[in-house]
């Protein structure tokens, strides 16, 4: 309970507390420092979030899962199965932290939570894809395999990007009446059959092209559900593909 006098009780009591120094005005730097810490915290967490998203996109591109949804429902299912859930979870944790940190500012709390979170998610996804386009992760992967990346190196080495369960990456060796033969990065040869239902994302695929074939596989035979031409070899099979390409050309 606070001491009370009948008239002007609150004013007198507050002024008495100020004069007796039992209540002290916090200095301006205290608030500036707190604001700075919140901003730095939010920016660092957002950067970490963008890194995790771009690394996830990189992983999915390396194992071909990113292209899978273009092959229909089975492809979407395959993408979901291939998602690195630990990174998805980490991204959600970072997203929650950023949202909590920015929620005290009017640009966030004046909007419904769904709008604010959706805006943030969109911003992070676009940034993640843009970072992925810079080939930052490809370079980091090369550095990591050479042992030149001390901190994040293990992250790239541990996740060795195995191809999706129903996908094979390789070079088109020969064209056949029903499709083509494919030389996989481990020098294994597959016979790929294309059906009218097969989705070929680049109709001009020809010999020596690097492709990812998605479909049901029995031994060396693949009934293709989809074929996706890859613009460049993922770094983890870069060397194998280079050797294969050289052999086919020779």
């Amino acid at each position: 309970m606070h001491p009370e006098t009948p008239n002007n009780s609150i004013k007198d009591s507050v002024l008495a507390s100020i004069q007796s120094h039992s209540i002290i005005m916090k200095p301006k730097w205290h608030f500036l420092l707190r604001t700075a810490l919140v901003i730095v915290g939010a920016v660092l967490t957002a950067l970490a979030l963008v890194y995790v998203v771009s690394f996830t996109v990189f992983m999915l591109r390396q194992n071909g899962a990113l292209y899978a949804p273009t092959f229909g429902l089975a492809g979407v299912e395959e993408l979901l199965r291939s998602l690195p859930w630990i990174f998805v979870l980490l991204a959600l944790v970072f997203l929650t932290i950023v949202e909590i940190l920015v929620r005290q500012y009017s640009f966030a709390y004046k909007r419904p939570l769904v709008v604010s979170v959706a805006g943030l998610t969109l911003l992070v996804c676009v940034s993640g894809f843009l970072v992925d386009k810079t080939h930052l992760h490809e370079e980091a992967y090369r550095q990591a395999t050479m042992g030149k990346l001390p901190f994040a190196g293990a992250l790239y080495r541990v996740h060795s990007f195995p191809p999706m369960r129903n996908a094979v990456i390789g070079l088109i060796k020969t064209k056949t009446a029903t499709g083509f033969t494919l030389e996989g990065h481990r020098h294994e040869t597959f016979v790929v059959t294309l059906t009218p239902e097969t989705i070929v994302n680049d109709q001009d695929v020809t010999i020596n092209d690097l492709v990812m074939v998605f479909g049901s596989r029995i031994n060396e035979n693949i009934q293709a559900v989809g074929v996706q031409e890859l613009p460049e070899a993922p770094p983890w099979i870069e060397h194998d593909i280079h050797t294969l390409r050289y052999n086919i050309t020779e």
Binding site: V14, I23, M25
Partner: peptide, 12 residues
């Protein structure tokens, strides 16, 4: 009363 005391402490 606590509101005013808090307001004074955080006035900056």
């Amino acid at each position: 009363q606590d509101v005013f005391l808090k307001a004074y402490a955080n006035l900056q």
